[in-house]
């Protein structure tokens, strides 16, 4: 009984970690699907989102879960600017260029944030801090339940947006066949900007949820989660949003399992070991059918 409850707890922490990864990975996937671009600096948007929430919270004291929306909105704007200034000019000039460009963005965002907000570790207190609810044999803080619900809501919203709105359907069309979309009169450049902004907004949501769960953050926080999110979409198959969700959950569970069984230092390494093993067996990822 004791052991079972430990395993259940660790599964629960894995599930929570998975939520952050899912949001990051879904954002990356959305951008990749439409633009066929991979932004290694995606984690920096998570960091900026966290800092925007932090700043607004500091000045207004609003509920951080409300600020989440504001933070997402701000990141749509920042994402659109980055897309227009940095990624648009190099579209189609080679995939390596995108990777190199991301490195430049990482330098700029991390250190720009350090210049604006300082490099000290910060934290935000959730208004529901200290409230616990029983879930089966566990007693878990209310915040985690909210985080999981918010993640699910965002994902449902995204699904509805893609399936029911015109822009969403145009995004899907562009993602399936860029030239075809152009031929039927879709302004693909506008779709690019929108999907890049949306992807960044999802990263901002991940950042905000990270912050309210009581985890500390600093300007360098985003680098590793972003790379892991990328590992997740490789596992789940590039461009596949259900794949990203399953991959994100698996990654959260694998990491926490490894930290428990092998020691905390293996937490990062295990993600990449899983990735390499999968790629050796299936060079296109677990669920990836066609190559990017």
């Amino acid at each position: 009984m004791e052991d079972l409850s430990i395993i259940l707890q660790i599964l629960f922490w894995g599930l929570y970690a998975g939520c952050i990864y899912i949001l990051l990975a879904t954002g990356l996937n959305l951008i990749f699907g439409v633009m066929k671009v991979v932004n290694f600096a995606h984690g920096e948007f998570l960091m900026v989102g966290a800092y925007i929430t932090f700043t607004v919270f500091l000045f207004t004291g609003f509920n951080p879960y409300v600020i989440l929306l504001l933070s997402m909105l701000a990141l749509v704007g920042i994402g659109a600017i980055v897309e227009r200034l940095c990624f648009r000019p190099i579209l189609g000039t080679g995939k390596l260029n995108e990777i190199f460009l991301s490195i430049g963005l990482i330098y700029i965002f991390q250190n720009g944030a350090a210049m604006i907000w300082g490099d000290a570790w910060q934290s935000v207190k959730s208004p529901y801090d200290g409230i616990s609810v029983p879930v089966g044999p566990l007693s878990v803080p209310l915040d985690y339940i909210i985080i999981m619900v918010v993640t699910a809501l965002i994902l449902c919203g995204l699904y509805l947006f893609l399936k029911k709105t015109t822009i969403g359907m145009q995004m899907q069309a562009t993602s399936q066949n860029r030239k075809g979309a152009m031929l039927v009169g879709i302004n693909v450049e506008r779709i690019d900007i929108i999907s890049f902004g949306l992807g960044c907004a999802l990263a901002a949501a991940a950042g905000t949820l990270w912050v309210v769960s009581g985890q500390v953050f600093n300007p360098y926080m985003g680098a590793i989660p972003a790379v892991k999110a990328f590992a997740i979409i490789i596992l789940g198959g590039l461009g596949s949003i259900p794949g990203a969700i399953i991959g994100g959950l698996l990654m959260g569970l694998a990491e926490n399992g490894a930290a428990f069984l092998l020691g905390g230092i293996w937490k990062d390494a295990v993600s990449f070991i899983v990735l390499i093993v999968v790629l050796v067996i299936r060079p296109t990822g677990l669920f990836g059918g066609k190559e990017g």
Binding site: V38, F40, K95, L96, I99, V227, F230, A231, I234, I265, W266, D268, A269, S271, F272, I273, L275, I276, L279, P283, E291, G292
Partner: peptide, 20 residues
């Protein structure tokens, strides 16, 4: 057998694994 991004990821992860 890997494409650009996949290769970038594997090499990136490899450095972390070696450090660990």
């Amino acid at each position: 057998r890997l494409k650009e991004w996949f290769l970038a990821m594997v090499t990136f992860g490899f450095a972390i694994i070696v450090q660990t």
